[in-house]
Nucleic acid binder design. Sequence first.
DNA 1: GCGCTCAAGTAGCCACTGTCAACAATGTAT
DNA 2: ATACATTGTTGACAGTGGCTACTTGAGCGC
Lengths: 203, 203
Amino acid sequence: MQDAPNRPYHHGDLRRAVIETALDMLREEKGWQFTLREVARRAGVSHAAPYKHFPDKAALLAELAMIGFDRLRDTLSAAKSEAPNSLRDEITTIARAYVTFGTDNPALYRLMYSAEDGQAVGIHLNERALAVFDVLLEILRRGQAAGSIRKRPIEGQAAAGWGLVHGMTMLAIDGLLVPEKVGSAPLDAALSALVEGLGSPAT
Amino acid sequence: MQDAPNRPYHHGDLRRAVIETALDMLREEKGWQFTLREVARRAGVSHAAPYKHFPDKAALLAELAMIGFDRLRDTLSAAKSEAPNSLRDEITTIARAYVTFGTDNPALYRLMYSAEDGQAVGIHLNERALAVFDVLLEILRRGQAAGSIRKRPIEGQAAAGWGLVHGMTMLAIDGLLVPEKVGSAPLDAALSALVEGLGSPAT
DNA sequence: GCGCTCAAGTAGCCACTGTCAACAATGTAT
DNA sequence: ATACATTGTTGACAGTGGCTACTTGAGCGC
């Protein structure tokens, strides 16, 4: 498809094609060396063509990272809506979905959290990341309203949950949570501990 | 000092000098672009001299990462020995030391967890990382023996703690735990929740 | 239809990096 | 002293990214 004979001179939507190709490359191998020229090669265009749509490589990576955060947020939202009624099961389900997203897309997940901050585009990137954070906030907010979550500063509790799943995901991606050393279900153990800690004492 | 006129032809201990220079560079700026040539430049030797001591760039990075893990382990051990008697305070102290190590050495910490795995040197690297893991294991083991920690598979609990501090550290390094959004002490909240979850119900 | 402008794609140059091979300087064993 | 091993230097090569000038295609007013 990439070299269809009647491919028009103007690609039409090269921007989207570049993004799709890059996402494919990220999906392939964890340790893939990401080069713009390789992206262009796979997209079937010349090596400088992407520069018409992205000012530089960092801009493309930032765009990919933002897409990743958007997808992660959608994944979590979907998992939340399918979760059972129990708040505890809901948290467990969403956490599992989070870690699964990371282990299913290791290169993308790594990229999402390795994009340079402090740049102009970094602000928007952080916005996307904080949207993920808000999904967790909402659950805890409901839990507090229902009385099954302690009435503590909610941001700290959400940060705890985010930090936990983020850390577990990164360790899993790096192959540091090998089952022999760590037991069969470390995430479950971690979540149990955390949820019980978050839970109100009466429960 | 790097261009003393009577600098001998042979550096004397270039291997150590390269490592020190590289660590200095990692300490300087978080987003620093790490190049072997720049290391050699700063060390005052030719651009290819480091190859007499490291087979390639990855080997140097792996060495730096191992040093980082060793230092982290020492930091945690030191914090542990200075901690108060209470197991809970001990966990809090060591966790704080962990996160502080990460935020104090952001580039080094990032490097430690971004070195490629599956390589030949990756095995040794993982050994160092698991040594850090063992510090956490030991605390929990004592806690279980004392009865203040639930008698659950201990590796899962340690993985929970490791994942938590690792995740909090990474988020902090990436500037995603901005105080306005997250409260003043998210780590404390997280640890409270986790410790209470780990703690035995009678406590 | 004609010529104009402009977007989209191409080709090539420069700087820089990692890496290797050949050479030079130093120390060491015999 | 002589041969050798070690360590550092120089020069070179391929690969990469950023930048600029050039070419091709398409839309527009007339």
